[in-house]
């Protein structure tokens, strides 16, 4: 049951394609879990459709149609694209392969990866470069070009706690598998959770299953404990190194 959804700002900016790429990836991931938000995005696109129809037309060049038809050539009938032929529901999900347990975490099966993340994990989440952070958490940073945010897949071991951290910028989390909770509430698959700058929290995965999330951070979070403050420069260095290797996205 999804309880946390993107608000009207996210959905409107998404429908008009005005969201930065990493945030759009997060909204898109949520939409695959949430039929209600998808319906809203379609309604919002209708605004665009009607506004398009009401624009003052701008004349195209005189030979515009002929040039287009010469590009189309003598092809017979409309060119049905493979995209439209494939059964969409089947095509839109990839059942990720078992995540390798080389990092010492329990293997994770059955992670449904939203379409926006498929390229990232061609062949399964184990193809990503993971950085182990403490016992319970490992992180696979992903590069989204032209984007100022840090985006990553987090894998939190069942019952594991993340270091308590405070956000210097907005953090978006989309749950892909499992569930977690913090002082504010508990979250399950598909939930779209936003934390703003200045909010501190310590998420904890539920006891029975690992938790996998897509996380997009406006700026790096600042862990609170002295241990993590010491760890931070090292972690940043390793994340950066790993990011340079994760170029599939």
């Amino acid at each position: 049951m999804i309880s946390y959804h993107p608000d009207s700002r996210f959905l409107t900016d998404f429908a008009a394609a005005n969201l930065p790429m990493s945030e759009a990836v997060c909204v898109s991931a949520h939409l695959e879990f949430c039929g209600k938000c998808r319906a809203h995005v379609q309604q919002l696109a209708d605004i665009g459709g009607h506004m398009l129809a009401r624009l003052q037309p701008r004349a195209v060049e005189e030979d515009s149609f002929e040039r287009l038809m010469s590009r189309i050539g003598d092809g017979d009938g409309a060119q049905q694209t493979a995209d439209a032929v494939l059964p969409a529901a089947q095509e839109s999900l990839v059942l990720a392969e078992e995540v390798s347990s080389r990092a010492g975490l329990a293997p994770t099966r059955g992670v449904f990866l939203p379409r926006a993340l498929r390229r990232l994990s061609a062949g399964g989440l184990h193809n990503l470069s993971w950085v182990q952070l403490g016992n319970a958490l490992r992180v696979a940073p992903v590069r989204i070009s032209g984007d100022a945010r840090d985006t990553a897949i987090y894998d939190i071991k069942a019952g594991g706690r993340m270091p308590e951290h405070e956000h210097r910028g907005e953090e978006i989390t989309v749950l892909l598998k499992g569930s977690f909770s913090d002082a504010e509430g508990s979250y399950s698959r598909g939930d779209f959770v936003v934390r703003n700058a200045g909010e501190a929290h310590q998420p904890m995965a539920t006891q029975d299953t690992d938790c996998i999330c897509l996380v997009s951070l406006e700026r790096p979070v600042r862990p609170r404990g002295w241990f993590y403050r010491l760890l931070e420069p090292y972690v940043q260095y390793r994340l950066q190194k790993t990011l340079e290797r994760n170029t599939t996205f």
Binding site: M21, S28, G35, R38, H40, A88, L93, S145, T247, F249
Partner: peptide, 24 residues
């Protein structure tokens, strides 16, 4: 000047998902 691209159609796509569209 982005060196790596995500396919736009993977994000703003028309495909249905297993979660049915809620009838609004």
């Amino acid at each position: 000047r982005a060196e790596r691209n995500i396919d736009i159609e993977d994000i703003w796509h028309e495909a249905d998902s297993p979660e049915p569209l809620v009838d609004l």
